[in-house]
Amino acid sequence: MSDTTTRALSLLNLLQTHRHWPGSELAERLGVTERTVRRDVERLRDLGYRIESSPGAAGGYRLEAGSAVPPLLLTDEEAVAMAIGLRVAASQRLVSGPETTITALAKLEQVLPAPLRRRVNALAETVQPAGLNAGAAVSSDVLGELALASRDHERVRFTYTAASGEVTRRRVEPHALAPADRHWYLLCWDLEKDDWRTFRVDRLADVEHTRVLFEPRPLTPEQIEEFIVVARSWVRQKVEADAVMELPLDVMREYFGQWGQGAEAEDDTRTRWPVGGADWRETMYGLMWIPPGVEYTTDLQEPGRSELRESLERMLRAIDAPPPPPRGAAPRPRTPTPD
């Protein structure tokens, strides 16, 4: 690096540390003349830094905010502090736009020297914000690699361990990272399944960059949110059942959209769909989404089966009974009981 470049960077570092610097003091700090300071200030202005100068005995220079963010110079301690802060914000979802936090963290850690990275790892392990529930442990390296691949539209491979324990190797086009219910999820296009898939990041390992770029498929924020909602619900429930409906798999998937995940063809005309919830009421709510007129059977177990039957029978009696009087109407006279 040339002396001129080194001096300009030193000047920039000084301007970032104080609100105002007299020209004579800058010259003394840098070991140059005030004329050289003025030339170096002009070089920084050419690079996009807004530096205000004021004449006179009390005059000097100060760095102002511009219309765009120019490169920053950080000391080792500042870089470590920023990396730890970004890790905490990312893991605890303290800020909006979590994918921005992860991308910023990935960019910073990508350029940290090995000794500083070790300091960040050691200190971050001891930083536990109070009052926040942590989710499953997620590797910041994995998050960073996925964030960069999503930003750069680069295909990646990784090893995924499903909730069942099945281990598979996946090849995907990463689209977005999103936190939900104390977990991180990767939304991506699965090249083997030829469909969208959502993966829990804490179950990901061995991320491999392929250096193959792709054209991202369009998705609205609402669609991304729906994918994540479905992924959050795709966990083992207290009450689970299968519904086998008289509907071909392709027709069923067209009707249910992302909520049809997990459905399998029973045969050419029937589809098996897992449904569940915290209790039989939530399971019943899921069954109610089966299209009108489509017959189905379910293997809902006891006691949920009996509880559901009793509730439905009582509901049918209420529907078949005469409606109650309108609100505010005089009550109907009771029929006298004979002696």
Rank of each mutant, 00 (worst) to 15 (best):
R211K: 11
P333A: 08
R87T: 07
P129R: 10
G277N: 04
A163Y: 09
V172S: 01
Q110W: 09
R270Y: 10
L63T: 07
R19W: 08
R317W: 09
T271M: 00
T4K: 12
M284R: 15
V207W: 02
A243K: 08
A89T: 05
E254T: 13
L44E: 13
L11W: 11
E192D: 11
Y255C: 09
P291V: 12
E307Y: 06
P216W: 05
A65Y: 09
L300S: 04
M1Y: 05
R314V: 06
E215Q: 13
I224M: 12
R334Q: 12
E154T: 15
G276P: 00
A321F: 10
D3V: 09
N121F: 00
V69Y: 05
T210I: 04
S150Y: 03
V120E: 01
D299M: 01
V32M: 07
E78A: 09
R50Q: 14
M252H: 10
G85K: 01
R7V: 11
T298K: 09
M82Q: 10
S54C: 08
T335M: 10
S306I: 04
A58F: 05
R236M: 09
L86G: 04
R170A: 01
R281G: 11
L15V: 11
E282S: 08
E222W: 06
A65I: 05
A265Y: 05
R211L: 07
A89P: 00
Q223E: 12
G59S: 05
E208A: 03
E226K: 05
D190F: 03
G48A: 02
T36C: 07
E313F: 13
R232K: 14
E154V: 15
H18N: 13
P303R: 08
A136D: 14
A90P: 00
S311A: 15
D250L: 07
G304E: 09
R217F: 04
G262W: 04
M252C: 13
S91I: 08
V294H: 01
L112D: 05
W234S: 14
E52Q: 14
R309Q: 13
G277Y: 06
E222V: 12
D250W: 11
A178C: 06
V275Q: 07
L191M: 08
R7N: 10
L116Q: 10
R232W: 07
T298C: 08
E264R: 15
P55G: 05
R270M: 03
M1P: 13
Q128M: 07
A114C: 02
I102T: 14
E166W: 03
Y185Q: 00
D202F: 06
P338E: 09
A162V: 00
E78D: 07
W234F: 13
R334H: 08
L213Q: 12
T161F: 04
G66V: 05
R62P: 00
G56A: 04
P303F: 10
Y296C: 04
A205P: 00
R157P: 01
R327K: 15
P336N: 10
R151P: 01
Y296M: 04
A149Y: 02
H153F: 13
L191F: 01
R117F: 08
V69S: 07
P303M: 08
L308I: 07
